Simulated assay, not measured.
Amino acid sequence: MTSAELEAARSGDEEAFASLVAPFRRELHLHCYRITGSVDDADDLLQEVLLAAWKGLPGFAGRSSLRTWLYRIATTRSLNALREQRRRPRPVPVPPFEPPNPNDRFDLPHLQPYPDALVDELDPAAQAVARESVELAFVVALQRMPPRQAATLILCDVLDFTVTEAAELLAIGPDGG
């Protein structure tokens, strides 16, 4: 990223903005998927993240890297989407269907596997890490965790952000407070 490219994007140059965010699109999509467990939701969230970044770029002060700033937006949007999903009432089955006994142990209605074709677009080293971090078992475990805890795990253990950076992204102290 050059400062001229950043300034051009800030002044409304769509091509400069596209060039700035292009290196991060795939990893941001993966990040949104890991948090939500849904490729469809990740698609929608990536669009929201890019729109928010476009609108917020004039306010980007450069105190952190562009990547960190984009991850802050993506993490916040993803956590908000999870919060919103939990607030929506569950659909009521239409009679005469007899629903099974309620069991929230494995109630993850939006969990989808991440398409191999999207992981294959990454370089070979990133592919290995990405495949491991989008395995359904890992994503199921993430879905069972409290959202902020899952986001912290993803940021630190998958994306190699430091604890301090993750705390800053999530607007919490490094000790959780």
Rank of each mutant, 00 (worst) to 15 (best):
T152P: 00
T152V: 04
A137F: 02
V94Q: 10
A52M: 05
L28M: 04
A18L: 11
P102D: 09
E98H: 11
A167F: 02
P174D: 05
P146K: 11
G37M: 02
R86V: 12
L108R: 09
P100I: 09
P124W: 06
L28C: 05
D120R: 06
S133C: 04
Q127I: 13
V49P: 05
G12Y: 00
G173M: 12
L122K: 04
L66K: 11
E5C: 14
R63I: 08
A126V: 11
N101R: 14
A126Y: 01
L108M: 15
I35M: 05
T36N: 04
D44G: 13
E165P: 08
R34C: 03
E168L: 09
P124M: 07
Q143C: 10
P93R: 06
P95Q: 08
C156N: 04
D160T: 11
V119D: 01
I154G: 01
T68W: 03
V139R: 03
L30K: 09
V119F: 00
R63T: 15
R88E: 13
Y33I: 05
M145C: 10
D44K: 09
V140D: 04
T76I: 07
S3I: 10
P96M: 10
P102Q: 10
R83E: 15
T164R: 12
S11K: 14
V158C: 06
R25K: 15
D175R: 07
D40M: 06
F138M: 11
S19C: 11
G56V: 05
E48W: 11
S133G: 00
L169P: 02
G59R: 14
P96V: 13
A171D: 13
L30A: 07
I154M: 03
E14S: 14
L50T: 13
R88G: 08
R105I: 06
Q47V: 14
Q149H: 12
E121K: 06
V94S: 09
R88L: 14
E15D: 14
E14Q: 15
S133R: 00
L79F: 00
L155R: 01
A167S: 03
A166E: 02
P115S: 01
F138T: 15
L66P: 09
V158A: 06
L46W: 10
R148Q: 10
S3H: 07
P115M: 03
H29W: 10
R26D: 12
P147N: 03
R105N: 11
Q143W: 00
V94F: 03
F60R: 10
L66R: 11
G177F: 08
M1R: 10
L79T: 06
I172L: 13
T162S: 14
F17V: 01
H110R: 14
P95L: 11
L153G: 07
E48L: 14
V140I: 14
D44A: 13
D116S: 05
L111R: 05
H31P: 04
Q85R: 15
E168D: 12
R83N: 13
L50M: 14
E84N: 12
A16E: 04
R72I: 02
L46H: 09
